[in-house]
Design a protein around this nucleic acid. Structure first.
Length: 274
DNA sequence: CCCGGAACCTGAAGGC
DNA sequence: TGCCTTCAGGTTCCGG
């Protein structure tokens, strides 16, 4: 599933391909994917426009255009952006670019979204801090956590609290920080909060270095896979031994999705130093 | 404002 | 063989 490391890797792959290139035509095959405008206006507004670059905010891809508007894409769970992708199923939209190239928005479950807007903030304005930027500091994290009673994992997944983490990387972050996913945010010790901050940075940086995790449909724009999933220690590993203590990894349900953790290393009541 | 659950969506995988 | 359930999860909406 595309989370911050996957979207960052897609951004890095797309930038040299699309930057400076003009859009010649746009076809939309799943009308529900277009959010900001009627589909006709969306296509007409993009045709003839030049893509100036590619940016990322949280899990959103942002393409500044030369008419000062912005094309924004969110891949949700199964969205893929394929450069010169040929005859593939589940195509939500095709962006034809000068030079005969085509950027294919493929999306098996069809939950991905597209916007054409005057400014990016109308779409991404409510997002929390970027975890790899200085604005995400240990002090700011501690201050915000101590007012909240929700399970820590629910907060890590809340894009208004922190932008970019999804289910898989949240599990990896909590394991690395040795924090139980159900522990209430305000109950984290200063040491746990410090470990959590560091773990967010380390897990996401490693995910980017490995070009994302190719579970399910995730692919880079050239069709290649990332390898971050091979570094996962608890995510999707129910019953397998914890890499630290060999206790079988458990799965519980939290907010309708799986939370994988080591019941020994991530004790809900005890603060176990690394 | 805060929290938790359902809905959206399409498969793969496993049990019986 | 075929049917049913569970799992996969990013975001938004709704009720308490």
């Amino acid at each position: 599933m595309p989370e911050l490391p996957e979207v960052e890797s897609i951004k890095n792959g797309l930038r040299p391909l699309v930057a400076g290139r003009r859009i010649t035509a746009v076809e939309v095959f799943r009308a529900g994917a277009v959010k900001s405008l009627p589909v006709e206006d969306f296509c007409r507004g993009l045709a003839g426009n030049r893509i100036l670059g590619v940016e990322r905010r949280g899990k959103f891809l942002i393409f500044p255009l030369d008419d000062r508007r912005y094309l924004i894409a969110h891949l949700r769970m199964t969205g893929v952006l394929l450069w010169d992708g040929g005859d593939v199923p589940y195509v939500s939209a095709r962006f034809h670019l000068e030079g005969g190239h085509v950027l294919v928005f493929q999306d098996r479950r069809g939950l991905g979204k597209l916007w054409l807007v005057e400014g990016p903030d109308t779409v991404v304005g409510g997002l929390g801090p970027e975890p790899l930027q200085p604005e995400f500091s240990p002090e700011a994290l501690r201050e915000r956590l101590k007012k909240r009673s929700a399970p820590i994992k629910a907060l890590l997944l809340d894009q208004h609290f922190l932008a970019g983490l999804g289910n898989m990387y949240a599990d990896e972050v909590l394991f690395r920080a040795r924090v139980h996913p159900l522990k209430r945010a305000r109950d984290l010790s200063p040491a746990e909060t410090a470990r959590l901050h560091r773990a967010v940075r380390e897990v996401l940086s490693r995910g980017i270095a490995l070009k994302g995790a190719s579970v399910d449909t995730y692919r880079l724009p050239d069709g290649g896979k990332g390898s971050a999933h091979s570094a996962f220690q608890v995510a999707h590993r129910r019953g397998l031994p914890c890499p630290v203590c060999s206790t079988p990894i458990e799965r519980i349900s939290l907010r309708g999705r799986g939370a994988y953790f080591c019941p020994k290393c991530q004790n809900r009541l005890l603060d176990i130093p690394l």
